[in-house]
C-alpha cells in the first residue's frame, strides 16, 4: 500500500490528533479538513483515494457535504464517522452506494479494516480465489477444507468461516465486533467472552502443538493471524 491519499474531515481536535497519527502509521498520507468548506476545497483540488467524513461538522451536515461532492463529480469512496445513536436512512443509502459507516467510539483496527475494504471494492477485482494460503495453513474454499502442514483440520462449518475470515485478514488485527459482524452477521457487543471461546477452540485445532502458533490475541484490541 504505497501511500494512499486520505482526506480526514473531522472537527474535534482530540480525534484529529490520534486519527492522523494512527492513519499515518498505517501508511496513509493524511490531509486534514476541520470543516465542510475546507473539505470541499481540498477534495476538488487534490485527488484522494479515500475520504473519512464525520457527520457532525461545525458548518454543515456531513451528509450534505458528501452529496455536494458527489454532485461536483467526486467519486472517491467515503467512510462516514457518526457519533449519533442511530444510523439514519440517508447514510444507509450511501452505504448501498458503495460507501461505509462506523459509529463512534470505534477500534482503530476496525477503522483500518473498513478503509481497506473500501479501497479494495474500488480497485479492479481479480477472479475470486478458491484457495487461501497463509504460511503452512491452506484453505480450500470450494471443499470447505483446511490443512495445516498438509494435515487436515477437523473444523465445524462455523469454525471454517471464522478461519477463512482470519486468513483473508492475515497479518492484520481484527476486533471482536468485526468478527461478530463479518462471521455471524451481528452488530452486537456481548459483555461475555463468546468470541474469545470460539477463537480459543479454533486455536486449539489450528495451532495445537504446532509451531509457530499462528492465532495471536492482542488484548484490548483483538486477534491477528500471523503471516510471518
Amino acid at each position: 500500500m504505497s501511500s494512499m491519499r486520505l482526506l480526514l474531515v473531522e472537527d474535534e481536535r482530540d480525534i484529529q490528533t490520534f486519527l492522523t497519527q494512527a492513519l499515518a502509521e498505517a501508511g496513509y498520507a493524511v490531509d486534514l479538513a476541520p470543516d465542510g468548506a475546507a473539505a470541499e476545497g481540498l477534495a476538488l483540488v487534490n485527488s484522494y483515494d479515500i475520504l473519512v467524513v464525520d457527520l457532525n461538522l461545525p458548518d454543515q451536515d456531513g451528509f450534505n457535504l458528501i452529496v455536494r461532492l458527489r454532485q461536483m463529480g467526486v467519486r472517491t469512496p467515503v467512510l462516514i464517522l457518526s457519533a449519533r445513536r442511530s444510523i439514519d436512512d440517508r447514510v444507509r443509502g450511501l452505504e448501498q452506494g458503495g460507501d461505509d459507516y462506523l459509529t463512534k467510539p470505534f477500534a482503530l483496527a476496525e477503522l483500518l479494516a473498513r478503509l481497506r475494504n473500501l479501497l479494495r471494492r474500488n480497485a479492479p477485482q481479480g477472479g475470486e480465489a478458491t484457495r487461501l494460503r497463509v504460511l503452512d495453513l491452506e484453505l480450500d474454499l470450494l471443499r470447505r477444507e483446511a490443512k495445516r502442514g498438509g494435515e487436515l483440520l477437523q473444523l465445524t462449518p462455523q469454525e471454517f468461516v471464522l478461519l477463512e475470515y482470519l486468513c483473508r485478514n492475515a497479518g492484520r488485527v481484527v476486533t471482536r465486533s468485526m468478527i461478530l459482524e463479518q462471521v455471524w452477521g451481528m452488530r452486537i457487543q456481548p459483555d461475555t467472552n463468546v468470541v474469545d471461546v470460539h477463537i480459543y477452540r479454533l486455536r486449539g485445532k489450528v495451532d495445537g502443538n504446532r509451531q509457530p502458533p499462528m492465532i495471536r490475541t492482542l488484548r484490548g484490541v483483538g486477534y491477528v493471524l500471523k503471516d510471518r
Partner: peptide, 18 residues
C-alpha cells in the same frame, strides 16, 4: 447526549489504543 459523550470516548479510546 450520545454525541457529547461519544466524542470524548472516541478520543480516549483512540489515544489508549495508539
Amino acid at each position: 447526549l450520545a454525541h457529547d459523550l461519544r466524542s470524548p470516548l472516541t478520543a480516549m479510546r483512540g489515544k489508549l489504543e495508539t
